[in-house]
C-alpha cells in the first residue's frame, strides 16, 4: 500500500475517534475527504480489515479499530506536545502542521520514548486528553525524562512548567489562578519544610503533594 493511502486511512480512523470523543457520531461525507481518496472507499477498506463496523447508519470502531485509532491520536497529540514543549513552538497552527507530518513517522517504540521524555503528559497543548500508552502505566524513568515533577528538582533550580497533572480539578484551578500555568517560568526556592516557588514577583508556598503534580523542564 502506498504511503499516502496509509496516511489517509490513519487520518480517517483518527477522525472517527475524535468525533466519538466529542460525543458525536461519524457518518461519511460530513467531513472533508482525506486527500485523494474518498471516505466511502476508505471506509470499505477499514471494514474489510475489521477496524470499523456499521451500526445503523453510523460507522463505529471495532475494539481492534479503537486500539489502532487511539494509538494514532496518541501519536499526534504527543507530537504536538513535543513541538510546543521542547521545541517551544509558539504558534498553534504550525504546531498542528508539524504534528501532522511527524505523527506518521513515529513507530510505537519511538512514541513511548517521546512520551517518557515528555514526562508522560496527560493532555495535548490544547487541553485534550492524550490516550495513555503502556509506558505511562509503567511510568518509566529508565530513559531520563527531561520533563519531571518539581519534587525532582534541586532548590535554586529554574524551570519552565510543561504541564500540571492534578488529582483534583480545583487544585489545578487554584494553581492557575496564581499564574502557575504551563509555559510559566519559575524558580524553586526551597523544598523544606514546604515547597516555595517564585514566579515573577510572587512567592508561592505549596505542599510537596501539589509540587509533585507540577511537571517542568529545567532552564538556565
Amino acid at each position: 500500500m502506498d504511503r499516502s493511502r496509509r496516511d489517509a486511512i490513519e487520518d480517517l480512523l483518527r477522525r472517527i475517534w475524535v468525533e466519538k470523543e466529542s460525543g458525536n457520531s461519524f457518518s461519511c461525507g460530513e467531513s472533508p475527504a482525506s486527500g485523494n481518496f474518498s471516505d466511502d472507499e476508505l471506509i470499505e477498506e477499514l471494514k474489510n480489515k475489521n477496524l470499523v463496523s456499521r451500526d445503523g447508519d453510523v460507522e463505529k470502531l471495532t475494539p481492534k479499530g479503537e486500539e489502532k485509532a487511539s494509538n494514532i491520536v496518541r501519536r499526534l497529540r504527543l507530537a504536538e506536545r513535543l513541538y510546543s514543549d521542547l521545541l517551544q513552538g509558539e504558534d498553534e497552527d504550525s504546531s498542528a502542521k508539524f504534528a501532522c507530518r511527524f505523527e506518521h513517522i513515529l513507530n510505537d517504540e519511538v512514541t513511548d520514548s517521546v512520551c517518557t521524555l515528555l514526562g508522560h503528559p496527560p493532555t495535548c497543548p490544547h487541553g485534550k486528553r492524550i490516550p495513555r500508552g503502556s509506558c505511562c502505566q509503567r511510568s518509566e524513568k529508565e530513559l531520563h525524562s527531561l520533563v519531571k515533577p518539581l519534587t525532582d528538582f534541586a532548590p535554586g533550580a529554574k524551570a519552565r512548567i510543561v504541564f500540571i497533572s492534578p488529582s483534583f480539578h480545583n487544585r489545578l484551578d487554584r494553581l492557575n489562578s496564581f499564574g502557575v500555568l504551563p509555559g510559566a517560568e519559575i524558580s524553586l526556592h526551597q523544598k523544606k519544610p514546604t515547597f516555595v516557588i517564585r514566579l515573577g514577583a510572587t512567592e508561592i508556598a505549596l505542599e510537596k503533594e501539589v509540587a509533585g503534580e507540577i511537571f517542568a523542564i529545567g532552564i538556565n
Binding site: 466529542s22 460525543g23 496527560p122 487541553g127 486528553r129 489545578l172 500555568l181
Partner: peptide, 21 residues
C-alpha cells in the same frame, strides 16, 4: 458536559492558559 469531556484537564485551565498568553 460534552465540553468538559473533551477538555480532560479542565476548561478553566485551558481558558486561563489562553488569557495568560
Amino acid at each position: 458536559e460534552d465540553m468538559r469531556r473533551q477538555y480532560s484537564v479542565s476548561i478553566s485551565s485551558t481558558m486561563s492558559k489562553c488569557r495568560q498568553k
